[in-house]
Design a protein around this nucleic acid. Sequence first.
DNA 1: CATTAAAATGAGTTATCACTCACTTATTTT
DNA 2: AAAATAAGTGAGTGATAACTCATTTTAATG
Lengths: 223, 223
Amino acid sequence: MERPRIRDYFQQDLSQNETITPKQRAILQASLDLFAEKGFDQTSTSDIAQRAGVAEGTVYQRYKTKVALRDAILAPITAHIVPILASDFSEDKLRQRYPSLQAFVTAIFTDRVAFAKANVKELKVIFEMAAFDTERREQILSQIAPKMVKQMGSVINQLKADHLIVDWPNDLILQSLLSQLFGYLAQLMLELPGTEIEREQAYLITVMTKILTPGEHDQITGQ
Amino acid sequence: MERPRIRDYFQQDLSQNETITPKQRAILQASLDLFAEKGFDQTSTSDIAQRAGVAEGTVYQRYKTKVALRDAILAPITAHIVPILASDFSEDKLRQRYPSLQAFVTAIFTDRVAFAKANVKELKVIFEMAAFDTERREQILSQIAPKMVKQMGSVINQLKADHLIVDWPNDLILQSLLSQLFGYLAQLMLELPGTEIEREQAYLITVMTKILTPGEHDQITGQ
DNA sequence: CATTAAAATGAGTTATCACTCACTTATTTT
DNA sequence: AAAATAAGTGAGTGATAACTCATTTTAATG
């Protein structure tokens, strides 16, 4: 497996800009943990204060509202998820011709899977928000989707020209890949049992490759 | 595509047992709609009463608590989802030998996809609950997972004996299929754009079949 | 060390929400 | 149609949770 080249900002995320006091940092960490454990609405600000070991007033020192606190946690993720999901591979990864599907899938998804693994908690909070906040969901999607469709599309078209990939509409190809990624994510987020994460990750690449390999079973069986 | 043979109880779900007054029915419907739209915690009992066109006290007439109300909605689903997901195909569908993968996948998943489509709202509420209520999630899973693994496992083993299916561990096979189903569900629940539901459904079967077809790319690429 | 600014505190305020109950209206039963 | 039972009502209650602010503690600065 290729070495994962996750950018540093995933780790130092929470505190990247400005000075931040240890207590503020504790508040962010406690919030993230609790939001991921119990959900946003089921987490009270007094819960947060208690877990962080501070007074409740301290929570409101920097973040005016509970929602602002959640946004402060999600901001770095949503700010960086766009490059990771869409633009990131625009330069080097896009220009090159892939010799095989396996190479393509590996190049495109290794980073993303690593990203997901490193940010399970944040993703869970994002999903909870996106599930019911239609506006926000659409706003985030409108940032990501077009870029992704366009950029992946051009790579896929190249592969099609070389007859290296199945001859489906590009959106179907994307969907099948994202479904697979999504299922993997669900496994991580829900802590479903029977999961050896390392093996799963390699397997994900294999399955994706298999889906895309051209073959005789490729016609869509509609009615 | 095979005709969908969805059982009746999906349609008459909410009112299946006992006499239920029109107002009670309106309350259940309003609750379901609101829970799916805004989420459980963001829906107040006065919201429900208003949407249903009844007094707030009426909500508490039959259901002692808000949680009990949610359970009353989910009960028929969770009661029937077990047969649908696991036992349903135990008799006829299990015994027969499948001539092709396509036949197997179609037989197994057509019902389930139809079920999902007919119960998007309910599934959304279930997922919200399962996301953060660890106990309940595990309880539901413990009912479904073992049956499913066992019964699907035996069919898969048969197919393996006939060399009709990829030679992967059964849990990996199941995961890849469920991921695909899960991705489709996410599409329905989140109302993601660019979706022609009918086409997607046919495509789902095709992709699943493709994943399972034996071939040369089948070795898991681990490190 | 003294002064000033920033950070932290926690008791208090306000609003909302789940839930109750004494009472009214509708529906059966005799 | 009188009596009895069930269904429905909505003002009221207690608890909880988000948020405020006057005050204290800590850190920075001259």
